[in-house]
């Protein structure tokens, strides 16, 4: 049981951090309800997963995958190969990390797309990679810490950016970018670590 190192962001532990965020969310929910804003509200009491229906079977539609792929193209460095089937397999093909996670991810995708349509004149897929990044920035998602139960922007950071980065960094396709031939999270066998930089192949 070797200890992991302690750093500021890595000291996770213990007592209830109480429900500061829950309180905020509750207040937000009340405010939204009081304002009579029933339509298209992306935040507040919770991101509302879209589509309805078979959320557990197929949480994401083709359109969601397409949008998520378009965002991945903007978030990943350009040399990272990515297409829709890769995104679908890597993101939605993995074991769902927590119950409801995929639904929240889909809701985050929808929130980003909605913002793109409202303030960038079209869906994410119609925008250039630079403008896709602009959408994320103008939503406030690039200047917050990822927070699963936070505001819409924090959730976009947590679910959407977090998932995309996780699947990239645990895939051998990112090896050229990171210099890690067998990235943690990928079952690349027990030969690579002995091989050294002179070896070849994965």
């Amino acid at each position: 049981m070797t200890d992991s190192k302690s750093t500021l962001t890595d000291t996770r532990d213990d007592l209830p951090s109480l429900s500061r965020r829950q309180l905020l969310a509750a207040l937000g929910g009340a405010a939204v309800a009081a304002g009579g804003y029933g339509y298209g509200v992306g935040g507040g009491a919770g991101l509302t997963p879209g589509g309805g229906g078979d959320a557990s079977d197929a949480p994401a539609s083709d359109a969601h995958i397409e949008t998520l792929t378009a965002l991945a193209e903007a978030i990943y460095p350009p040399s990272m190969p990515v297409d829709e089937s890769w995104i679908e397999n890597r993101v939605f093909g993995r074991v769902e990390p927590q119950e409801g996670h995929f639904d929240q991810l889909v809701a985050a995708v929808e929130a980003v797309d909605e913002h793109a349509r409202a303030r960038f004149g079209g869906p994410v897929t119609a925008l250039s990679p630079g403008h896709r990044r602009g959408v994320l920035h103008s939503m406030g998602a690039t200047e917050v810490h990822p927070t699963a139960d936070g505001t819409t922007a924090e959730r976009v950071r947590f679910y959407l950016l977090g998932d995309l980065l996780y699947v990239m960094l645990t895939a051998p396709e990112s090896s050229d970018l990171t210099g890690i031939a067998n990235p943690p999270g990928y079952p690349g066998g027990t030969d690579v670590y002995k091989r050294g930089p002179g070896g070849d192949g994965q």
Partner: peptide, 17 residues
């Protein structure tokens, strides 16, 4: 403040925008 209370964005990012 509205953006924060509605759970949309952090206060500081909304204000900066």
């Amino acid at each position: 403040w509205v953006a924060t209370v509605a759970g949309h964005e952090r206060f500081y990012t909304a204000a900066a925008d």
